[in-house]
Simulated assay, not measured.
Amino acid sequence: MRGEPASPIAAHTHEHVFLGANHGRNERKVWLVIALTASMMVVEIVAGTLTGSMALVADGWHMSTHAAAMLISALAYLYARRHARDPRFSFGTGKMGDLAGFASAVVLALVALLIGWESLLRLADPTPISFTQAIAVAVLGLLVNIASAWLLRDEPHGHGHGHSHGHAHDHHGHAHGDHDHHAGQDNNLRSAYLHVLADALTSVLAIAALLVGSMYGWLWADPLMGLVGALVIARWSLGLLRDTGGVLLDTVPHEPGEDVPAEIRAALETGGDRITDLHVWQVGPGHHAAIIALLSPTPQQPADYKARLAHVHELSHITVEVARAA
């Protein structure tokens, strides 16, 4: 009812919305690139089949995997946004993008094996290629890749949206408040972006193979480039598996130029205070959570420890436990 004071409990509750910066904008960009990629995928597969170009067919199927992987990314954005406040998710849906990236990396690894196997078969038994038509389509595919990469580029941005907060508590009670947070890296957008870059590289290899084949009649150059493309895709998929898997398994975050655990220790281990247990993990792009156990000869209020961490903008959720030292 209007005029009544807010509930004391309500004043200390908070949401766990840890979506990345520009979540909605990135989602729209991925959907647009999916449309571009799917259209070009159909053109390349059909043209490669008609002209007999393995490199062009491989590039088309490679684009199809990128379209499927980007669809996973787009659906992850959609699901994370719609369920951002679902209480079933203890720390929100900020890691949904990493789950999507991990899934797309697995698909890419399988496709790399298929392309590599088909290229080996073509090396053993080369087939005639209509070079002129194949080169024209490959160039068109490269242009689509460049346009898609431009759309998905990760532009510099400020603070992300979503309620960024920290809360600290000990045996006396609870305290919470707001933090500004570092924008961080959106692995879901990065996944889609790297798919497009890898696809552009495959297009370049296809064009190079077709040019060499048309000038010197080296039919083996086409499947050879298919093998090179397969190796590039496999290496990229392994890198994405490593990065997204680390987030999903709550490894200690350590990005270049940033060491959140070290910053926490530097801020709290002053005087006689010592950290006896520290857990830091990523809960969303640019959002990190921390559980800190402190031993202090003169325990302070939770808000005091939180205030010491105010400059660590990557922290969005903080839990502090304090025990009195003997």
Rank of each mutant, 00 (worst) to 15 (best):
E269A: 14
H254V: 12
A230K: 02
S237Y: 04
G246L: 02
V260P: 07
G239M: 03
R265S: 05
L219N: 09
H254N: 14
R265I: 08
V260W: 09
G245A: 12
D243F: 06
L227M: 13
G229N: 00
L268R: 05
D273Y: 13
A221L: 09
M215R: 15
G239Y: 02
D250V: 01
R235V: 11
W220H: 08
V212D: 08
V232K: 05
V260K: 11
V228Y: 01
Y216L: 13
S214F: 02
L219M: 13
L240W: 02
P256A: 11
L249Y: 04
L231M: 15
D273C: 14
L211S: 10
G229P: 00
R235S: 12
S237K: 02
A267Y: 13
D250Y: 05
W236Q: 03
A266Y: 04
P223A: 07
S237G: 06
L231T: 08
Y216T: 15
D250N: 15
G246F: 00
D222H: 03
T251V: 14
G217I: 06
P223V: 11
D259A: 13
W236H: 00
D222L: 03
P253T: 10
L224V: 00
L249S: 13
M215C: 13
A266I: 06
A230G: 10
L219V: 08
T244Q: 13
D243T: 14
A209L: 09
L227H: 07
L227K: 05
E258Q: 14
L238M: 08
E269K: 15
D250P: 02
P256D: 07
L211A: 15
L211W: 14
I233R: 00
L238S: 05
L241C: 01
I233W: 01
G226D: 06
R242K: 10
H254D: 11
L268D: 04
V228Q: 04
G257Y: 09
A209C: 12
P253S: 13
A262P: 01
G239E: 02
L227S: 05
G271K: 03
V247M: 08
P261H: 12
G213D: 13
